[in-house]
């Protein structure tokens, strides 16, 4: 069997803030973004704790012994340390052995899918039993910046293997489209990222569309071959527009489009969408997934769902997971996100 996904897990923090509450505080409208509310990590959560929660639930739901994990890659733009890896903390918290490749990834919102590509390559090279790729973020945004309406928190963990009893989605092909296009960045001592407004949209579509077309050219698939399509979700509108440009039926995007209800979870965004598709996909269906990371690049994947999916799925679907929530106002939001300096 081709290397592919053998397990997946998602963690979305319980706290939510409504976009209307942020609009109330700054007396601005964000109606064009297509986002209703966003997930907020509590003050004792960070990209590392979110990553552990996502990977742990996957180990439990899919009966994965952490000792089988030989590679751990954690992608994030909000690693809790500038120096000191998140990956080793996550592995230790899962109870892996000490024989594993590990490094933290950073490429704005696409570091999680980059980890997935590395695990896939390691598996194809037969260097590992199971590889773990995680996208996790507690995205930061300056108060009263347009990013504040969408920058959210969440994590998704994907386990890569090739056992024919375990693979639920074969990775048929993956490719990346990358260029130097600085549409969003954060310098070392800056607390919040900067961005270039409309230029980020231009960068998003250039890379997402190019990567998707590259993948279709290399595999021979047409837009109509995909039962589901997942795109990076900086807001509720961009993924739908990307689908339209590519000629993909918008109905095929909705299952993986979580952004309106959880916000932009950065490195986790595409992966949470993909997890939601795996919650419902049927054998032999093809899934297209395209991430986007500012700076800039897109990783594209085509997955083939196997028969194992019929008995191997997450215990709680992503769309049900997001129902467990607790609303907070803007004051509690700035307290939890540590925007109040104490």
């Amino acid at each position: 069997m081709e290397a592919g996904i053998v397990a997946y897990g998602v963690y979305i923090p319980k706290l939510r803030i409504k976009v209307s509450e942020i609009e109330r505080v700054w007396e601005k409208s964000a109606s064009g973004l297509g986002v209703i509310e966003k997930a907020v990590a509590a003050s004792d959560e960070d990209a590392c704790t979110l990553a552990v929660q996502a990977a742990r639930v996957a180990c439990e739901d899919f009966c994965i012994d952490p000792k089988r994990i030989n590679a751990v890659y954690v992608g994030s733009e909000s690693h809790p340390y500038a120096v000191n890896p998140t990956a080793s903390i996550v592995a230790e918290a899962l109870g892996t052995s000490n024989k594993y490749f590990a490094v933290d990834m950073e490429f704005a919102c696409k570091a999680g899918t980059a980890g997935l590509q590395v695990c896939y390559a390691l598996k194809k090279a037969k260097m590992i039993d199971i590889g773990l790729a995680i996208g996790s973020d507690t995205a930061q945004s300056k108060p009263n910046d347009p990013l504040e309406f969408t920058a959210a928190s969440g994590a998704a963990a994907f386990f890569i293997g090739d056992s024919k009893e375990e693979v639920i989605a074969e990775i048929e092909h993956t490719c990346s489209y990358t260029s130097d296009m600085p549409d969003f960045w954060r310098r070392p001592k800056a607390e919040f990222p900067e961005h270039t407004g409309r230029f980020t949209g231009e960068a998003y579509f250039k890379h997402v569309i190019s990567a998707a077309k590259m993948l279709m050219e290399e595999t021979g698939y047409k837009a109509s071959d995909f039962s589901y399509a997942v795109f990076h979700q900086p807001n509720g509108k961009f993924p739908l527009k990307a689908a339209k440009i590519l000629g993909i039926d918008l109905e095929r995007v909705k299952q993986g489009l979580l952004c309106p209800y959880i916000g932009n979870t950065y490195s986790a965004s595409t992966l949470i969408g993909l997890a939601s598709v795996l919650d419902v996909a049927k054998p032999n269906e093809k899934v297209l997934a395209v991430s986007y990371g500012s700076g800039a690049g897109s990783d594209a994947f085509v997955l083939n769902i196997t028969d194992n999916i019929l008995h191997r799925r997450a215990k709680v679907k992503v769309w049900d997971k997001i129902k467990e929530k607790q609303y907070i106002d803007y004051a509690l939001y700035v307290k939890h996100r540590r925007k109040i300096k104490l």
């Binding site: 004792d44 959560e45 960070d46 590392c48 704790t49 552990v52 929660q53 742990r56 809790p80 340390y81 000191n84 903390i89 918290a93």
Partner: peptide
């Protein structure tokens, strides 16, 4: 059990993680 931050002495020291 969940995995959370337990304490951090200041913005320079190590973060203590653990169970809640």
């Amino acid at each position: 059990k969940v995995f959370r931050r337990i304490a951090e002495p200041d913005e320079y020291g190590t973060i203590t993680y653990g169970y809640k």
